[in-house]
Each structure stands twice: as structure tokens, then as C-alpha cells.
Simulated assay, not measured.
Amino acid sequence: MTQHSHSHPAGFKGFFYEIFVPHSHDAADSIDDAMEAHSEGIRALKISLVLMLGTTVVQAVIVTFSGSVALLADTIHNLSDALTAVPLWIAFVLSRRVATRKYTYGFNRAEDLAGLFIVLMIALSSIVAAYEAIDRMINPRPMDNIGWVIAAGVIGFLGNEAVAVYRIRVGKKIGSAALVADGVHARTDGFTSLAVVVGGIGVVLGFPLADPIVGLLISAMIAVLLIGTVRSVGRRLMDGIEPELVDRAEHALQHLAEVESVESVRLRWVGHRLHGDALVRTSATSLAEADHLAEDAEAAVKKRMPNVDEMTVRVMANVR
């Protein structure tokens, strides 16, 4: 297997980079059937949606009798996270549809549009959380049942982290940047829930402003972490590709004895599936040999990268 041709941050920074900006190129080693990938993605969304709605309901009940603005901000964010599963679910269902004369490449791009919607929802939740925190600073209100608020924060963290791990794992497995982004969204919710715990402890220690201050910090943290998700989803929309996937395709082509050189390789994500083309040079002297090589080359790439749906290989030969 070829090594990654681009580097990731190392050390402490790399640890947080992998937590909050995971990438999905590992899919090249996993599911090779498009329908199976769609089904696994939908199953992940169903399970995580139920978990997130349950977490949100518990937190909303505690908000009503505690008056915690930090917990309210966290609950709003958790609700937005749960709702982002709906458009992504629709996108996975659309991806199952066969191509038509109007949409000749199929409907897999719906998944990338859902990823953009998720980015917008994360941004909106950050704005709402900031507004509520600032309002509570200007118009202070007492916070009751602090023990329950702290418990709700812990519940929020556990629920969100479980959903995040599941979504990111499945997203990486099937190559879905949108599902990975949704997992990152859940993970930010989890850490903001821990911030609610900190705010509650601050109030217990005699610092009432700790609650709205933490609510404001939550919105700021969401905005900062949004940058990595924007890059990931934006790269997909711009047909960006992880360089190591190009390396892997080139490696598969170069190992064919008939290939003298690989002139170019292009890949792009369409939803969570890969499409691409390549140009190779050979010393073949007949059209039959060139055609046979093109078929072998396509098969070699698909074997090496199971989630490649389409690979068109052109052959430059010394045909007489």
C-alpha cells in the first residue's frame, strides 16, 4: 500500500485534528457495493436520530425547571444535530435511484448538498446559542436545580459521543464526507455538554455568570470547529480528492506489466462513491491488445479501491 502523500498535524494538535476533522478516505478499503453502502448509511442515521432525540428530550425537560441558558444552548444544538439526520437520510434514499435522462450521473450529489445543509445548521446553532447567552448576561435570571443541570450535561456528552463515534465510523467506512461531518457535529455537541457541566459547577461555587459565559464559549467553540467541516464539505463540492487515493489508483495501474507509464489519473467523489479516468502508455502494437489492457486496468483499480463505481482508462499505444 502506498503511503499518504499529504501529512496531518502531529502531537497535541494532531490529536485534536483527528477528533474534530476526521477524513473519510479509508473507504477505499471497505464496502464495494453501492447499495450496501447506502443501506449502512441509512441505518446509521436511523439509530443516531433515535439516540439524539432521546438525549434532547431529557435535556429539554431539565431546561424547563432549571432555567440554565448554557443547557438551553446545548439542547438547541442537540436538536439541530438530530434534525440534520433528516436531509442526509433523504439524500441517501435519493442516491439509490437509478440515473435518468435528465440526471445521467444519478443522484449521489444529493449527499454533498446535505453536507452543505449540515454546515449551515451548525452555523445557525452557534448564532442561536450566542444570542441566548448574551441575553442572559444582560437580563440575569436565577438558575435552579443545578444538580440536574450538571447531570443533563453529562447525559448530553455521553449521548452525543456515542452518536459521533458511530456516524464517523460508518462515514469513514462508506466514504461519506457528509456523514462524517454529521458525526463531527455530534462530537462538538458532546463537548459543549461538558461545558454545561463546568457552568453548573461555577454557579454552585458562587459565580452566577458562569452559566451564560459558558453558553457564549459554547457558541465560539462551535464556530471555530466549523472551519474544518466547511473545508471537508467544500472540498467535495469542488471535486477535491484526497491525494493518497490518487496515489493508490496510480499504484494499481503501474503494477500492470503492459503499462509503461501512467500519464494522468483523475478521481472525484460523487456522494460516497468514486468516479474517475486515467491515461496510460503501453508498447502494445494492436487495437485488441490496447482494448484488453484498458479492461485490465479498470479491473485493477476497482480491485484496489472497491468503492470506485466508474473508471475509464484510455490507452496510448504504438498501434500500426
Rank of each mutant, 00 (worst) to 15 (best):
S7E: 15
G14C: 07
F15R: 13
F16T: 12
F16Y: 15
F16P: 12
Y17K: 05
I19P: 00
S30H: 15
S30V: 06
I31C: 12
D32W: 13
D33F: 09
A34H: 09
K46I: 15
S48M: 05
I62S: 07
S68P: 14
A70L: 08
A73M: 08
I76H: 13
F92H: 15
L94S: 10
L94F: 07
A99P: 14
N108G: 15
N108W: 10
E111V: 10
E111F: 05
L116C: 05
M121Q: 02
A123F: 11
I127Q: 04
A129P: 06
A133H: 08
I134Q: 14
M137G: 06
R141I: 04
P142Q: 01
I155S: 05
V163R: 08
Y166C: 02
R167T: 02
V180A: 05
D182G: 15
T188M: 11
G190W: 08
T192Q: 12
V196Y: 06
G199M: 02
A210E: 00
I213R: 00
G215D: 01
I222Y: 03
A223V: 05
G234D: 04
E244A: 10
L253K: 07
V259C: 04
S261Q: 10
V262A: 01
V265T: 00
R268Q: 03
H272P: 02
A278S: 05
L279Q: 15
E295F: 02
A299N: 11
V301Y: 13
V308A: 04
M311W: 12
